[in-house]
Amino acid sequence: MASSEQIVQQYWQAAHRRDWAGFAALLDENVVYEVPQTRERIRGRDHYLDFNITYPGDWQLRVDSVIGNAQQAVSRITFFVDGTSCEGISFFTLQHGRITHILDYWPEPYDPPYRHTAHIERY
Score class of each variant (00 low, 15 high):
Val35Pro: 00
Ser75Cys: 08
Ile102Ala: 04
Val74Leu: 05
Val74Asp: 01
Tyr55Thr: 14
Ala70Asn: 09
Gly97Ile: 01
Thr117Ser: 15
Cys86Ser: 14
Ser4Met: 00
His101Asn: 11
Ala24Glu: 13
Ser65Asp: 06
Phe23Cys: 05
Ile102Tyr: 08
Leu94Arg: 06
Arg115Asp: 07
Tyr33Met: 08
His16Asn: 15
Arg17His: 14
Pro112Gly: 13
Tyr123Leu: 11
Tyr48Pro: 03
Phe92Ile: 02
Leu103Arg: 12
Ile53Ala: 10
Pro56Val: 06
Ile102Phe: 07
Tyr11Pro: 02
Ile42Gly: 02
Asn69Leu: 00
Val74Gly: 01
Arg39Gly: 08
Asp58Cys: 11
Asn69Val: 01
Gln10Thr: 09
Thr84Leu: 12
Arg76Thr: 11
Tyr114Gly: 02
Gln72His: 10
Ile89Trp: 14
Arg115Glu: 15
Gln13Asp: 13
Ile120His: 10
His119Pro: 01
Gln37Ile: 10
Asp111Tyr: 12
Arg41Pro: 03
Asp82Val: 09
Gly97Gln: 03
Ala2Ser: 14
Tyr114Pro: 03
Asp104Pro: 01
Arg98Phe: 06
Trp59Cys: 03
Arg62Thr: 14
Leu103Gln: 10
Pro112Asp: 07
Asn30Phe: 10
Phe80Trp: 09
Ala118His: 14
Ala15Met: 11
Thr78Leu: 08
Glu108Leu: 14
Leu61Tyr: 02
Tyr114Ile: 05
Arg41Ser: 14
Glu40Ile: 12
Glu40Thr: 14
Ala15Asp: 05
Tyr123Met: 04
Glu29Tyr: 07
Leu26Tyr: 08
Pro112Ile: 09
Asp82His: 06
Arg43Asn: 11
Gln60Ala: 15
Glu34Leu: 04
Gln10Leu: 10
Glu5Leu: 00
Asn30Asp: 15
Gln6Cys: 00
Gln72Ile: 00
Gln13Pro: 01
Tyr55Arg: 15
His116Asn: 08
Tyr33Leu: 05
Ile7Leu: 12
Ala118Tyr: 02
Tyr110Lys: 09
Phe79Asp: 01
Gln71His: 15
Glu87Leu: 13
Glu108Val: 13
Gly97Val: 01
Ile89Leu: 10
Gly97His: 04
Val63Ser: 10
Glu34Lys: 08
Glu5Lys: 09
Tyr11Gly: 01
Gly57Met: 09
Tyr123Cys: 05
Arg41Ala: 05
Ile89Lys: 02
Phe91Leu: 13
Ala2His: 12
Ile99Ser: 03
Trp59Gly: 10
Asp64Arg: 13
Glu121Pro: 00
Asn69Lys: 01
Asp50Cys: 07
Ile53Asn: 09
Gln95Lys: 13
Val35Asp: 02
Val35Ala: 06
Ala15Lys: 13
Ser85Asp: 08
Gln71Ala: 07
Arg122Cys: 04
Gln72Thr: 08
Arg45Asp: 07
Tyr11Thr: 03
Asp82Thr: 11
Cys86Lys: 12
Asp46Tyr: 05
Gly68Asn: 00
Ala14Phe: 06
Asn69His: 04
Thr84Cys: 07
Ile99Tyr: 03
Pro112Tyr: 07
Tyr110Trp: 14
Ile99Lys: 03
Tyr110Glu: 07
Asp19Val: 11
Met1His: 10
Val74Glu: 01
Ser4Cys: 05
Ala21Gly: 07
His101Asp: 09
Ile89Thr: 11
